[in-house]
């Protein structure tokens, strides 16, 4: 009965969506603002990756809000999992085999390096702080799966997270003091397609990368601690 009703409901919704979407052609330019960003983006921000210039220059305030949502989700997860957790007797963790242990110790710095490359070059190539942060967090997943006796220090990850948020806001406030609006691009824009270009965009993306990486690593740490 429940199934039939839900299928009927979905059918009605699908009909409505089809009728409205049939009027929207696929594959044609739709927004004028996107066209503006493509035409003026390199000249105004110095970043050759237009997506990056939208995320951390035109809509940087929005990104600050999104980073805050991520922070709140991580805090909420920690709060939900740590309240009422009893001290369990230390369980003996079975060590991983030598091949696994050596392999993950070998790969860990390389994955961190790759993540750092992704978020440092966010204004030049596909990638950026969010993607690089996710890659950095995947290195920590590898250590938790491969070398199980190793733990990231909780204070270190909290410190990196808080410093990341703090630097983001400070850079924004310096822009407010220098140029009159929050998160203004006050540094010289340089020559496009060089590493040291695009003003505050690389700084903000490095900060976002560190913050996202430490937050996701903290989430994984909380979940793994719960499962033991």
């Amino acid at each position: 009965m429940r199934r039939i009703i839900s299928i009927l409901l979905l059918g009605i919704i699908a009909l409505g969506i089809t009728l409205s979407l049939a009027k929207i052609p696929f594959g044609t330019p739709k927004t004028k603002v996107g066209r503006y960003y493509i035409d003026k983006g390199v000249e105004e921000t110095g970043a050759t990756n237009i997506v990056t210039s939208v995320v951390v220059n035109y809509r940087a305030f929005d990104t600050l809000g999104e980073v805050t949502v991520l922070f709140i989700a991580a805090i909420g997860l920690g709060a939900v999992l740590t309240t009422g957790r009893r001290k369990k007797p230390e369980r003996k963790i079975e060590p991983a085999s030598l091949v696994l242990y050596t392999g993950c110790r070998f790969l860990f710095p390389l994955i961190l390096l790759f993540g750092a490359y992704i978020f440092v070059h966010g204004h030049l190539t596909p990638g950026g702080g969010f993607q690089g942060g996710a890659i950095v967090a995947s290195a920590f997943v590898l250590t938790y799966l491969g070398c199980r006796e190793r733990r990231i220090s909780e204070r270190g990850s909290k410190l990196a997270e808080s410093l990341g948020g703090l630097i983001f806001v400070i850079v924004g406030l310096v822009g407010l003091a220098v140029g009159g609006y929050f998160l203004m691009n006050f540094l010289p824009k340089g020559i496009p397609n060089f590493l040291f270009s695009a003003g505050i965009i690389p700084i903000l993306y490095i900060v976002i990368g560190v913050k996202v990486g430490s937050e996701l690593a903290g989430i994984i740490d909380n979940l793994i601690e719960e499962s033991e």
Binding site: L77, F130, L216
Partner: peptide, 9 residues
């Protein structure tokens, strides 16, 4: 781009 990472969290 941002929605994916927030979705994971």
């Amino acid at each position: 781009l941002t929605a994916i990472v927030i979705g994971v969290a």
